[in-house]
């Protein structure tokens, strides 16, 4: 039983990272119908920026995170303004291709600026952690769990109660009608990209604190992709829950079966789930996938 609990808890701790990245995918899709294939790369970019900030000024972790939140928002807005807005009115597929191009470009820029060597993200929480009985969790892992909870609740409240959140849902439901109702659709899009970048940025800082930085960090974006498919491409909440499910499933499959099943277990599950619920566990049935 102890073994099962340990596998589950450690699965949750990696799953929350998948969940956070997945939320970014889902939010952008919900608002713009675009799958942003550069979500993992945005996460990597912000974590490297955090490295430069942390190396230049010895900021406490929370201050560093605060700076990164602002920075991520700006990066998200810039991406939307420079790469995505010119694509408005174009085929969704073309915009998706732009995100793929952006992903490749960000990878190259990261290597160009920071080099390809693995690096430590110097934060003051470092290797510290807390022991809960037989389970030890790094401080950054605990923060990640807390941040996911805050994000889920925050996004629910935002989409449910705020004017902008309602506008975002309206835009997601039918863009033309939203425009006719006086909603500033471009602002909605910009906000979606900014929020997604903030979530990616925070998860990048936390991931970098736990595992260090490397130019292959973006692959975590790919690993989080099954989560967002499982949850439903347009379900921000579903992505968060599914991220945890995938993390736990990966750990249990490795712990009890092994033989590389960890790598494919997430994809196996989405194959099965999509056969029964093609729109994911929490998604809306009318989704058009690309």
């Amino acid at each position: 039983m102890d073994y099962f609990i340990l596998l589950t808890v450690s699965g949750i701790s990696i799953g929350v990272i998948y969940g956070l990245i997945g939320m970014g995918y889902a939010l952008i899709f919900k608002a713009t119908s675009v799958v942003n294939f550069a979500q993992g790369e945005v996460m990597m970019l912000i974590s490297y920026m955090a490295f430069s900030i942390a190396s230049s000024w010895s900021l406490p972790f929370w201050s560093l995170l605060g700076v990164c939140v602002v920075l991520s928002g700006v990066v998200g807005l810039l991406i939307e303004r420079i790469f995505i807005r010119p694509m408005l009115g174009q085929d969704v597929f073309s915009t998706v291709m732009v995100t793929i191009g952006m992903a490749v470009m960000i990878r190259a820029v990261v290597v160009l600026i920071w080099g390809a060597d693995p690096m430590v993200l110097p934060t003051d929480i470092g290797d510290s952690g807390v022991e809960f009985g037989m389970v030890f969790l790094y401080t950054a892992q605990i923060y990640a769990i807390g941040f996911l909870a805050v994000c889920v609740f925050g996004m629910w409240a935002f989409l449910r109660f705020s004017r902008m959140g309602v506008a975002m849902r309206a835009t997601a439901a039918r863009e033309t009608t939203a425009l006719l109702m006086g909603i500033n659709v471009t602002r909605v899009y910009a906000l979606a990209w900014a929020i997604a970048a903030v979530i990616a940025g925070v998860s990048g800082v936390l991931l970098g604190t736990i595992y260090g930085l490397g130019p292959d960090m973006w692959t975590q974006g790919l690993r989080a992709f099954p989560a967002v498919i499982l949850g439903g491409l347009d379900s921000v909440f579903g992505a968060a829950i599914s991220g945890i499910l995938i993390g736990v499933l990966e750990n249990l499959s490795e712990g009890y079966i092994g033989h590389g099943l960890k790598e494919i277990s997430g994809f196996l599950v989405i194959l099965v789930v999509l056969m029964i619920r093609p729109y994911g566990l929490f998604g809306t049935p009318e989704i058009e996938r690309v």
């Binding site: 450690s10 990696i14 595992y211 692959t219 490795e254 712990g255």
Partner: peptide, 20 residues
């Protein structure tokens, strides 16, 4: 004997298996 994918970040399950 634990085989893992190159570039893997999380080894929690592998090391728990080793501990067990």
């Amino acid at each position: 004997e634990l085989e893992f994918k190159r570039g893997q970040k999380d080894f929690s399950a592998e090391m728990l298996k080793a501990r067990a």
